[in-house]
Design a protein around this nucleic acid. Structure first.
Length: 417
DNA sequence: GCTGAGCTCAATTGCTTGTC
DNA sequence: GACAAGCAATTGAGCTCAGC
C-alpha cells in the first residue's frame, strides 16, 4: 500500500563512466577542463593515482590502475597527457550529492564516498512513485552535478544495493522481494554481498554456484560449515535484511599498522613509527567521535614472528600524545632489541567521545592537547594530511601519518550494512 | 601485447583463548 | 570476571602467468 511499505534507495556513483564521459567530451573538442573532473581517483584515495588521456588510445587503455603503470605508459607513449587527480573535488561532489538527496528524505546513510542509502519510506506522499522519484534524482544529479549514478530500489538495504549493481551506467533498477527469484537467484553466488573470494570456493565445494542455490540450501548445514557467516549469506540470498538506514553500529576498535621497508633496529626509529601510527589512530578516533580505554601495540620481527601487548588506560582518550605515550611504554616493555619489520598500534574498548571523564591526576594539559589535536585535524581535513606535521618527522624519511585510512568522514565500504 | 584468473601479502578488526 | 595476548577471517592491492 502506497506510503506504508518500506522503500530504500541505494545510490551508487558511476565513477568510471564519469571518467570515460569526460574523456569523450574532451576528445570531441568540448571546452572541458579535465582538471575539474572529480572522478579521477583511480580507486585509491591515499595513493591518488592519476589518469592518462590521449586521442589515439582506445578507452579500455585508460583503465590504468597504478601510478607505476601510468608513468611507464607515458614513457612508452610521450603523447600521453597525465593530469593530477582531484580527490578534494571528488569529496565536494559527494557532499553536493548528499545535499541534493537530503531534499528527498531526512534518513540518509553515507556508506562510502560514492554510495548512499536513502530511506524513501513515507516519502511517496511528497515526491510520488519511488521509481519516478529515483529517475528524477538520477537525472538531477546528472544535470546539476555532472556525473551519473545507478539507483537500486527495494524494501531493504541489501536488495537495494544488489539492484544498483545491475547494468550500468545511469540506470534505475528495482529488486523487490517478489522479483528475487527472477532477478537475483540466477546470478553467480560470488556476486552476492558478503560472498568474497574466501567464501565462494567453500560454497562451490558444497555444489552452490548461484545465489538461488544458496537460497535453497540447508541453513543448518551452512551454519555448521560456515558458522554465523553461513546463516548471514543464506538470509541475504533469500533477500532478508532489516538494518535501518542510519549510522553504522559502533566500531569496537581502531588500529593502524605498517610493514616497514627496512629493519627497525633502534628504539628512536621505532618510537617515530609508533608516533606516526598513533597520529593516525588518534585522528580516526576523533573523527569517529570515540575515546579509547585500551591501547595495544603489535610487532612483527624480520623472521615474521608476531607478538603484541596491550594496556588498559586510567581514563579514556582520543589524544595523540596519550595514545603514543601508552604505545611507547608498551613497546619499551616488550621489545628485546630484535630487528622489526612491522609495527601496529590499536585503540580498543571504545566509548562515546561525548562522555569524556577527566582524570583526577590530569596535570591540566588535557584541554590544551584536545584543542591542539582539533586544530591539527581541521587543517589536515581541509588541506591534506601532509600540510602539517611534527618537526621530528622533517627529513626523517618517515611519514607523519601512517595507516591506510584517513578520510574517516568518508568511510571505506564496510562489510556492515 | 592485452586480459583476466589466480595467487600472495598487507591491513584491519572481531573473536577466542589463556592467565590471574 | 577482567584483562592480556594472539588467532582468524575478510577485503583490497599488486604481481604473475596462461590463453587469446
Amino acid at each position: 500500500m502506497a506510503g506504508k511499505r518500506k522503500i530504500i534507495f541505494h545510490i551508487d556513483v558511476n565513477s568510471a563512466y564519469l571518467s570515460w564521459e569526460a574523456v569523450d567530451r574532451l576528445q570531441h573538442g568540448a571546452s572541458l577542463d579535465i582538471r575539474t573532473i572529480p572522478a579521477v581517483i583511480g580507486g585509491n584515495p591515499e595513493k591518488r593515482h592519476g589518469i592518462v588521456l590521449a586521442k589515439s588510445i582506445p578507452a579500455k587503455k585508460y583503465q590504468i590502475k597504478t601510478g607505476e603503470t601510468l608513468y611507464a605508459a607515458r614513457l612508452k607513449c610521450p603523447d600521453l597527457a597525465i593530469f593530477p587527480p582531484r580527490y578534494d573535488l571528488y569529496i565536494r561532489c559527494s557532499e553536493a550529492m548528499l545535499e541534493l538527496l537530503r531534499e528527498y528524505s531526512p534518513h540518509i546513510q553515507r556508506y562510502s564516498i560514492d554510495e548512499v542509502f536513502l530511506d524513501y519510506t513515507h516519502m511517496e506522499e511528497h515526491f510520488g512513485d519511488p521509481i519516478e522519484a529515483a529517475h528524477q534524482i538520477k537525472d538531477r544529479i546528472h544535470g546539476e552535478l555532472g556525473f551519473t549514478v545507478n539507483i537500486g530500489i527495494s524494501t531493504n538495504k541489501l536488495l537495494a544495493k544488489m539492484a544498483s549493481d545491475f547494468s550500468k551506467p545511469n540506470k534505475v533498477h528495482t529488486l523487490f522481494p517478489a522479483e528475487v527469484p527472477e532477478k537475483l537467484w540466477p546470478l553467480p553466488v560470488e556476486e552476492l554481498f558478503m560472498v568474497g573470494r574466501a567464501t565462494a570456493p567453500k560454497l562451490h565445494r558444497f555444489g552452490i554456484y548461484t545465489i538461488g542455490d544458496l537460497a535453497r540450501a540447508d541453513p543448518d548445514l551452512l551454519k555448521k560449515r560456515l558458522k554465523s557467516h553461513g546463516l548471514l549469506i543464506w538470509n541475504y540470498a533469500n533477500g532478508r535484511e532489516d538494518s535501518p538506514v542510519g549510522d553504522l553500529p559502533g566500531i569496537k576498535s581502531v588500529g593502524n599498522s605498517s610493514t616497514i621497508a627496512f629493519d627497525v633496529e633502534d628504539r628512536k626509529t621505532a618510537h617515530m613509527f609508533l608516533l606516526s601510527l598513533s597520529e593516525m589512530v588518534g585522528m580516526r578516533l576523533r573523527n569517529a567521535g570515540y575515546l579509547a580505554q585500551l591501547v595495544a601495540v603489535s610487532l612483527k620481527t624480520k623472521d615474521f614472528f608476531s607478538y603484541s601487548h596491550q594496556r588498559k588506560l586510567y581514563t579514556a582518550t582520543d589524544a595523540t600524545n596519550q595514545i603514543y605515550g601508552a604505545a611507547a611504554s608498551l613497546f619499551d616493555e616488550m621489545w628485546q632489541g630484535e630487528p622489526l619489520r612491522a609495527i601496529g598500534v590499536r585503540a580498543g574498548a571504545l566509548v562515546d567521545g561525548s562522555l569524556q571523564q577527566l582524570s583526577l591526576f590530569d596535570p591540566g594539559n588535557a584541554w590544551k592537547e584536545r584543542a591542539m589535536d582539533a586544530a591539527v585535524d581541521k587543517i589536515r581535513n581541509k588541506y591534506g594530511s601532509n600540510m602539517i606535521m611534527r618537526a621530528v618527522f622533517l627529513h626523517s624519511g618517515i611519514r607523519p601519518l601512517t595507516g591506510g585510512v584517513w578520510e574517516e568522514d568518508y568511510p571505506m565500504m564496510s562489510s556492515i550494512l
